[in-house]
Computed example of a mutant assay.
Amino acid sequence: MTANNEYPKASNATLIGASITYIGGLFLLLSFAGPYWIESYSEMFSPFKHMGLWEYCFDRFRFPSFQYDKLFHGCHYIFSEEYYVIREWLLPGWLMAVQAFVTLALILSLTAQVLLACVIVRWPLRTVLCYEWIFVSSAFAMVAISSAFLFLAVAIFGGNCYRRSWLLYPSFNVLSWSYAFAVIAFILFGLAAILLFLEARKLYELRLEAKNLVAQMQHSQPEHALHQLRDQLQQQQQLTYYRH
């Protein structure tokens, strides 16, 4: 074993929790960018086709309350000039709350993924070895909050998407894959948060044990303390080896 590989590697719990977080982040990214949170049944020939958090698609749609004879056609960004006159109808307050929750969840999950990547690759090495429990604890908090935000987002959207004051003919519409991906991301982040919490607690307990060991060394003879430290470190390494 070379000197570069003598430092302790990340535990299996951290690796599994990080992997689940990365998969959940992929689902969240696809949901965030996907224009298929809700769509109309193709058999109904509805002028509304589908929409995402940031895009609406219509097929020669005429808004009843708009006094000019204008048809909205094609897919456009929700903040584009095309939808300026009907933006208040397209973007009710509850949908803006969904956008905010999903955006915050994406930012937090990406930050957690960066922290977990640093823990796994051990970079920067000295900082990660000294503060690994802080890295994992911070990642746990961010992933758990992301899961909570996504739960609120899917609950709010699912409870309001069939309002008759929003899209016309709501009975013609059905929740689609972008919404399903947000639900999957919420579940995966919840599972990852549980694993990261358990690992953060274990790392914190190991840190307390190390502090107690240093305190015992200060009240012991130097040679006896050195042998005691060596024996305890060997025992910890053996326990870590058998755990992995």
Rank of each mutant, 00 (worst) to 15 (best):
L195A: 02
A153T: 06
L206V: 01
E39P: 00
C118V: 15
V136K: 01
L71C: 00
C130V: 15
F48M: 14
L28K: 10
Q236W: 02
L125C: 15
L208D: 10
Q237A: 04
C161S: 13
Q236M: 05
P124H: 15
C118D: 14
A192H: 01
Q221I: 01
V85L: 11
F79W: 12
C130G: 15
L95I: 15
I16R: 00
I184A: 08
H244C: 07
N4M: 09
H224E: 14
A100D: 15
L239F: 00
L188R: 01
S146C: 06
I38S: 07
G24D: 04
K70N: 07
L203E: 07
Y36I: 07
L203T: 06
Y22T: 08
E223V: 06
L104E: 15
G24T: 04
Q237H: 03
E205P: 01
F186S: 11
F135T: 12
L28G: 10
R207Q: 10
R230F: 00
M96Q: 15
W54H: 12
G159M: 06
L28Q: 13
D231M: 00
Y41N: 03
E132N: 12
R243S: 06
S178W: 01
L108F: 12
L203A: 08
F48I: 14
L15S: 12
P35Y: 09
Q67K: 03
L191E: 09
S138L: 09
R207V: 04
R87Q: 10
L30G: 11
H224L: 09
L110C: 09
L95C: 13
F61Y: 11
W54G: 12
F61R: 02
P47R: 02
V102R: 08
A112E: 10
L239W: 01
R201W: 11
C57T: 14
F79R: 15
V98F: 05
R201K: 11
Q67E: 09
P124T: 15
A193W: 04
Y179H: 09
R87M: 03
